Simulated scan of single mutants.
Amino acid sequence: MTQTRDSETAAGTPKREMRLTLKIWRQPNHDAPGKIHTYEVDDISEDMSFLEMLDVLNEQLNAAGEEPIAFDSDCREGICGQCGLMIDGEAHGPEVTTTCQLHMRSFKDGDTITVEPWRADAFPVVKDLVVDRGAFDRIIQQGGYVSVNTGAAPDAHATPVPKDKADRAFDVATCIGCGACVAACPNGSASLFLGAKITHLGELPQGQAERDTRVVNMIGQHDHEGFGGCTNIGECTAACPKGIPLDVISRLNWDLHAALRHGH
């Protein structure tokens, strides 16, 4: 059995370091075939994030004159949603968090870890672990606008919003569009993402004027992009790092049926 190696920190506290085997999907572009490559990486601290571990591997590859692994990241604070990866077959890995907030203490010295891009036809691979999530942007664009007056700041509470609806809108607005719900869904459905966006504005008075056209147009774009249908398996909400609840999909369906009854 491989033993965990310790080193001393500046404070003299034992610090766990790991040696890992990484099986990583490499694909030069969307049209070229891809395959799994195997790498060994060591001196990995348990305090590193998963992306910092990949940074160490890329430094190692650069030093050897090899092409570094392409992967997405931006804020690295669990906010932007850019860092999604399939880690050992799970969206974002073994913890319910974003990949950038997944730390190496969730793994053990000597582990073999498989890293792949999001698995969804609607998210084509750009290179290696990078996928094109522009489909989400196009769905949002189909949502259009809300009819509110602009100009001087309104008085506080000029538009009353019941607290339960305000809380609900704030909760679902935490969706960061990372795509974990799609990657985790066996059908490749974006219904949780779509339901969060529909529910967010549907709960607020400012979102009522375009409510019917919004849901019809966004669902139409969702289907046009090639996302699958929802069969209420629940893997989406289980993988969601922001805890978007499954019942937003019920709200999505309710709004769609209402819009169809209204002739949209």
Score class of each variant (00 low, 15 high):
Ile244Phe: 09
Val131Pro: 02
Ala64Cys: 01
His92Ala: 04
Met86Pro: 09
Asp137Arg: 10
Ala64Pro: 00
Asp247Met: 08
Arg5Tyr: 02
Phe136Leu: 15
Ile87Arg: 04
Gly143Val: 14
Leu201Trp: 15
Met86Gln: 14
Gly134Leu: 03
Leu85Gly: 02
Glu77Leu: 15
Glu225Ala: 14
Asp88Gly: 12
Thr231Gln: 08
Val148Arg: 09
Ile249Ser: 02
Thr114Glu: 08
Val130Leu: 10
Thr174Arg: 14
Glu116Phe: 00
Thr112Asn: 01
Gly177Arg: 03
Cys175Glu: 02
His222Gly: 12
Gly179Lys: 04
His92Trp: 11
Asp72Ser: 15
Gln208Val: 12
Ile87Val: 13
Ala152Val: 05
Phe107Cys: 07
Cys175Arg: 01
His224Phe: 13
Ile69Pro: 01
Val172Pro: 00
Val125Ala: 00
Asp212Leu: 02
Val215His: 13
Met48Ile: 00
Cys181Gln: 12
Gly207His: 01
Ala122Trp: 00
Asp128Gly: 09
Val41Cys: 07
Ala122Pro: 00
Ala239Arg: 03
Met86Ala: 13
Gly195Trp: 08
Phe71Cys: 11
Lys165Ala: 13
Ala166Glu: 15
Ala258Met: 06
Gln141Phe: 11
Val130Asp: 01
Val148Ser: 07
Ala166Lys: 10
Gly89Phe: 09
Gln3Ala: 14
Ala156Gly: 08
Arg251Ile: 14
Phe136Cys: 01
Thr21Ser: 15
Gln141Ile: 08
Cys178Arg: 04
Ala11Met: 12
Asp43Glu: 14
Asp31Trp: 05
Pro124Met: 04
Gly243Cys: 07
Gln27Ser: 05
Met1Ser: 10
Gly220Asn: 14
Thr4Val: 11
Ile233Glu: 10
Met218Thr: 08
Lys108Trp: 01
Ala209Val: 11
Thr159Leu: 14
Arg168Cys: 06
Cys230Ala: 04
Gly220Trp: 03
